[in-house]
Structures are given as C-alpha cells and as structure tokens.
Design a protein around this nucleic acid. Structure first.
Lengths: 140, 140
DNA sequence: GTATATGCAAAACTTTTGCATCCTT
DNA sequence: AAGGATGCAAAAGTTTTGCATATAC
C-alpha cells in the first residue's frame, strides 16, 4: 500500500510532509521516535519540514490511528507506527532498549479485572521496567 | 510515624517545606497530584512554598521511594504517595476518574513474560483506559 | 559552624498557536 | 478556485537551574 493511499484512507490529504514522515517512520530502524527524532531524521534525509508541522502531523496521525502515542516515564511523547498488532513494552532502565511482547493471558485478565469494576476498556498500556538480558547479566 | 521520622528515615533533612508537602499528600482526598496541585494545595492551607521547591522535593521524594511518579497519557507528571501496596490504574477517559485495582494473576503473568525474554523486572505500570461504570452507562 | 535547602527569577524544553503563504484536490 | 496544510515566529506550559539567603543538624 502506497503512503499516499494510506493517508487518503485515513482521511488525510497526501501532502509532502505527511508522506515523508510516514516514510521515515516506516523505514527507520527505530520503532519509537519523539517528535524531535522525526524532525531530525527528516533533516538527515535532506528534507526540511518545520517542527510545528511534525507535531501537527503526528497528532493527526494519532487521531487517524496511524501511530500510537506513548508517555513512558519520560517528559516527552514517543510515537510508534500502528501497523502491527497490539503489544506491550519492557523498558531497560540501563541501556534504554525497548523490548516488545504480547501475552494473551494478561489481556484476558485485564478484561476480567475491568469487568469486575464495571469498567469498559478501550485501550491499555503496560510497561515493565528493569534490566534487559544484556544489562542484567553484566555486573558492571 | 511522624513526618519528621519518615523524612529522616529516607535520608532527608526534616525541613518545613518537605514536612508540609508530605502532610498535604497524606491528608489530601486526592491521591494523584501534579506539582501544581501540591503548590496550590499548600497555598490554600496558607503555606507559602516556592514552586521550584515543590518540584525539587517531589523529585527527591521519588528518589527516596516516598512517592511514585506517573506519566499517564498527559503532558505532565502526577505524583502519588507510595505508602500503600502496589496497584494498577483504570483511567476514565470521559470524567477522568482514576480507579485503582490489583490483580495477582496479572502480576504473575508479567513476571513469566519477563523471564521468557531474560528481562529482570524492577517495577511496572499498567493503565486501562476507557469508560468507568458511571460514564459507560449514561448514553449522553 | 557547615553543609544543605529554599526562594526568586531566569532559562530550558516540549508542545501549541496565529497568521501569511502555499499546495492538494 | 477553495479549503486545508505549512512554515515561521511567538506563546504557552511544565520543569530545571543559578545564585544569594536562610535553615537544619
């Protein structure tokens, strides 16, 4: 599916900045990017897009369901393409690596817990913080 | 346990601003407060504490384990007293109400998922977003 | 008495917005 | 042609910091 069709399918005009941002996020080795990361990534590719536009486009992409906005424990938002199925995150507190995972059992128990409280869940976020395999074994 | 002893136990000098902030958070009906909330709460009690000090003290409290810092999906940090056992949160997206809950089964599965990835968990956060019982039933 | 904490103001950072101009349809 | 999108700069909001003064131990 071309980026253009993807945008139109989401009800957005296929403008150059939107196409570039979508392309960057699809081709980047980083799955999780801040607005600043996107802005700099475009500059590195030789594309000039205003930072304000990056913010506006990411906000629109989120509203359209193209990307997911995370807050993690930091001070700024992180965006991720929404092109795969839902997953949760393990964040390494030493090296910053983010490992994704899914667990149907957890999802199931979440729904049950919500139901017990009369709560209707539309989305959720689960983060595990600690040390990844690499950092946890090195004793430095 | 007096606030003073609590602070000293955490390795912090028992200064007036720290005591007031701790007291405010212990006595407030709000369990989740922003730095601004704390600042205004103190003003309402007639205590003048600089906003910069509130930020510094909350940061120290978090480092000392007295409070927990959350990011939720918003743009600013929210602090909560760490005086109770761990729990997760359900956030109502219409009225903003925060319902706390715990589920041992979920915790168990989280540990198992982490182990599968060689990850050592030191903490985690789980948020369910949706509609609370009140908002989910009213069709307005 | 000394090291640390506080208050104030200014700075730093992220994110949003007003407005003139440009581009997509 | 018309409405929406972009860029720039300025604004807004949160959080941090420099420095002189005040406080706890």
């Amino acid at each position: 599916m071309s980026g253009s069709a993807e945008l139109k399918g989401a009800g957005l005009k296929a403008t150059a900045p939107r196409l570039k941002i979508l392309e960057l996020m699809e081709e980047s080795s980083q799955r999780h990017m801040t607005a600043e990361d996107v802005y700099r990534g475009l500059l590195d590719m030789g594309d000039e897009v205003g930072l304000a536009t990056v913010y506006r486009v990411l906000t629109q992409f989120e509203a359209a369901g193209l990307v997911i906005r995370h807050s993690f424990e930091e001070d700024r938002a992180i965006y991720e393409l929404a092109d795969e199925s839902h997953h949760d995150h393990m964040v390494c507190m030493r090296c910053g690596k983010i490992q994704e995972f899914t667990d149907c059992g957890i999802e199931q128990l979440q729904m049950e817990a919500a139901t017990r409280h009369g709560f209707r869940v539309s989305s959720h976020s689960l983060y595990l913080y600690g040390l990844c395999a690499d950092c946890g074994s090195s004793k430095s």
